[in-house]
Design a binder for these strands. Structure first.
Length: 424
RNA sequence: GGAGGUUUGGCAGAGUUGGUCGAUUGCACCGGUCUUGAAAACCGGCGUGCCGCAAGGUACCGGGGGUUCGAAUCCCUCAGCCUCCGCCA
């Protein structure tokens, strides 16, 4: 959530930044500001009334102790009006505050300066490319065919046992999955990230902290009995570690990572984009998260991008990096780099990672601050990235490293999976 | 799931016959005196949000609600933690 302070101090800058998302937030921002002004004036008045009634209460206390009951009673009568008045003002203040908050949570993050204006994925800016997308090879097979022929993944069985989008991985398919997880975790460990195994369900407060709630509850599986949500990404439990926390400056940066399954309802998805491993309700992912000093976050974003590059190069996959334009960026991000791997068999780019800086947007929701050199508590910056999500990587490995006999395992991965080929 | 206990500022830990308690004290931390330097000792400071140019005011003693002129202290409710019992991987 944007900080109230930023709206108060830099209203016009906020509006022009949000314009890069192609939304006109003028009405909402001005609504926030007017509700805020309303709240403040109610509070000022309320504080005066409370001050007066506190004074009277103290007088009554004094008189009671001295046994001057009648004088005390006389003062008591004067408090009734103050009480009614303060209740009224409190109500007005709370209401203005609630209305202000309701508007504020609807505003997406302001894109960073370097983020391009733009509406669609076509407006994203390619910042790096490694390897060239090969032309469609005539006999390159999509991973869903390979998965069946080599008996690595059983989609139908998943559909029977659970439903569409919940595949079974089996045999070498399962081992490949397990090896990839270890490969990603070991690389994160080497890069200094502390590994966590977090809970797979989160409460509503955590959902709010990272921005899934309100409004996006439809994307998460919800257990109404206990009012818990299945995590859509490890970002949620990992980042919420820092909810309601004040860090000391020397505790920054915090670098943590974790492997979890992720659960997404993906309501509204359809068509070829959801074929095979392209879009699942349950998938595995290793997530990296950093909490940094505000001055450091963009440097950190770059190091996280470099980390993911290293993973893809280890897997020998052709990829490109896009800096998302305002219109294509998620609600909570100030800047996002997407990694896409080329699949000749599907003749398209597959998004395999997303690395973002949220600046203070999540910190403000999480109430995560650090104590600065001047002794003041200030918002931290939070960042995260997939490093990496499994299914599309698996798809890309199968599709890019297929030959006529089967699938070749890249050298860097062999120690983790225990074999160097998958053949029929 | 049942019974009981408990929840106070970074930590420890007072305060529950309601009344100058936002809160004693110790530790930690910051500044100063002393010292060649450090330690010790001594002096001072030391929670957070909001309103206010400031002085200052106001709110917060797990969350929410209530009683009262007045609540950390009483009542209701929810949650966390601990102990015992039950059930169970």
């Amino acid at each position: 959530m944007l900080t109230l302070q930023s709206l108060r101090d830099h209203r016009d800058d906020v509006l022009s930044a949000l314009a890069k998302r192609h939304i006109d937030a003028t009405a909402m921002v001005d609504g926030v500001l007017s509700k805020d002004a309303e709240r403040r004036s109610a509070q000022t008045e309320l504080d005066h009334v409370l001050s007066e009634s506190n004074t009277l209460s103290r007088q009554i206390g004094g008189l009671m102790r001295e046994g001057k009951k009648e004088e005390a009673e006389a003062i008591k009568n004067r408090t009734a009006g103050l009480k009614a008045k303060s209740a009224e003002l409190k109500e007005a203040m709370d209401q203005a505050e609630a209305q202000m908050h309701a508007l504020l949570v609807q505003l997406p993050n302001t894109p960073a300066d370097a983020v391009a204006s733009g509406k669609t994925p076509e407006d994203n800016v390619e910042t790096y490319r490694n390897g060239e997308p090969s032309p469609a090879g005539g006999d390159a097979k999509p991973h869903w065919d390979l998965a069946k022929e080599l008996d690595l993944i059983d989609f139908d069985l998943g559909a029977k046992v659970t439903g569409g989008g919940f595949p079974f991985y089996k045999g070498k398919g399962a081992k490949l999955q397990r090896g990839l997880i270890r490969f990603f975790l070991d690389r994160a460990d080497d890069a200094g990230y502390t590994e966590y195994i977090p809970p797979l369900m989160i409460n509503a407060d955590s959902g709010f902290g990272t921005g899934q709630l309100p409004d996006k509850e439809g994307q998460m599986y919800h257990m109404p009995e206990d009012d818990l949500y299945m995590i859509p990404t490890a970002e949620v439990p990992l980042t919420n570690i820092f909810r309601d926390v004040v860090l000391s400056a020397d505790q920054l940066p915090q670098k943590i990572c974790g492997f979890t399954p992720c659960f997404r309802r993906e309501a509204g998805s359809y068509g070829k984009d959801v074929r095979g491993l392209n879009r699942l309700h349950q998938f595995d992912k290793v997530e990296i998260v950093q909490v940094t000093h505000p001055d450091e976050s963009y440097g950190t974003l770059d190091t996280m991008v470099e980390h993911v590059k290293g993973l893809l190069e280890g897997l020998e996959l052709p990829y490109r990096i896009l800096r998302l334009c305002g219109g294509d960026m998620g609600f909570t991000a100030a800047m996002t780099y997407d990694f896409e791997v080329w699949s000749a068999a599907q003749e398209r780019w597959l998004e395999v990672s997303s690395v973002s800086n949220f600046e203070t947007f999540q910190a403000n929701r999480l109430k995560c601050r650090f104590k600065d050199a001047d002794g003041k508590n200030k918002w931290v910056h939070t960042l995260n990235g997939s490093a990496l999500a499994l299914p599309r990587i698996l798809a890309a490995l199968m599709e890019n490293h297929q030959d006529h006999q089967g699938i070749r395992i890249p050298a860097a991965l062999v120690p983790f999976v225990g074999f160097d080929r998958i053949d029929a």
